[in-house]
Amino acid sequence: PDPCYDENSLPRRCVPEFVNAAFGKEVQASSTCGRPSTRQCDASDPKRAHPPSYLTDLNNAGNMTCWRSESFPRHSPQNVSLTLSLGKKFEVTYVSLQFCSPRPESVAIYKSMDYGKTWVPYQFYSSQCRRLYGKPSRASVTKQNEQEALCTDGYTDLYPLTGGLIAFSTLDGRPSAQDFDNSPVLQDWVTATDIRVVFSRPHLQGNRDTDVSEDAPGYFYSVGEFQVGGRCKCNGHASRCGKDKEGRLVCDCKHNTEGPECDRCKAFHYDRPWQRANAREANECLACTCNLHARRCRFNMELYKLSGRKSGGVCLNCRHNTAGRHCHYCKEGFYRDVSRPITDRRACKACDCHPVGAAGKTCNQTTGQCPCKDGVTGLTCNRCAKGYQQSRSPIAPCIKIP
């Protein structure tokens, strides 16, 4: 059964399964050890290499493969970044990093919603929040700032020296998380196409400021697992994501929606505006009512409001001689053949008013009766009435018999 429809085939909200969106994806690291090779790391030797691909590969318990940065002198704090492209918009639930080195003392997490063009802060970890990131430490979260990055001194402890974790839960402590369906702010907050982690300061054993001799041991960053937990963003209109013809990740849209995130209605399905599905209402896109006489329609907000938010579609280019918002009546010069349904291609018949006997070309919409000149009769005004005979004048085609 399709999760996007219930047992009565009625639409209902559906979401793709929860996944580690980072798994198997490429990570761009600003620094990786092994070029040139050192005693611990050689990029050209698979047994001694620590490439970024180890961040998102399959990790078995007890067999963690670790990415590792270059080694830096301890008196020279270096920013090292890991950038992960998710390939499309995801609704991110958490970002986690499991370290093979000691956890950094300061870490910043950023997200992009436009495939890496712009970045916004997502979360900061530091014992010096104000100095490094200009943020107060452990600020209280309110509805006014729940879509802003916070800074905390949690997860910054040096210990454990290996295997330490940083885990950022995107909705944790956000007041509107309980009413996520009705919070466009948080729906936006969890949306990301890319995640970037920047290690800003290492944890150094000993004194950072005094131990600056040339032969003092340096430091490096090393991470075994970079996870981004979440769901492919489909706005409640798809239960799975797959690759399109160009190999791009896209939602398998239902409810008459389309787009990478099912973020618009299909053509001809704009009888009401696009909306995200929620637990109460699937908000599927509805086809315009055009009685099979039009292939295109447009949405009119005024009409939608006037209808009590039921129908706002306006049919375009009504065919088969029909007219009107729903192609529901016959255009001028045609009349309704009541023996056929309005959906019939021949529901509208030509008035066929006589060029001489009729006073005009437009007939009665329901009966088809043309307006006849004096003394003329018939549906199309093509005969003289009883007591009249044809004259030679096209202005008065029938005259009274003397």
Partner: peptide
């Protein structure tokens, strides 16, 4: 009684050439 349909050939269009329908 059904009357005959109007016979277009019987009309004299001399003064009404601009009203004459295409045939």
């Amino acid at each position: 009684e059904v009357m005959p349909t109007l016979d277009m050939t019987l009309f004299d269009w001399t003064d009404y050439e601009d009203l004459k329908p295409d045939t």
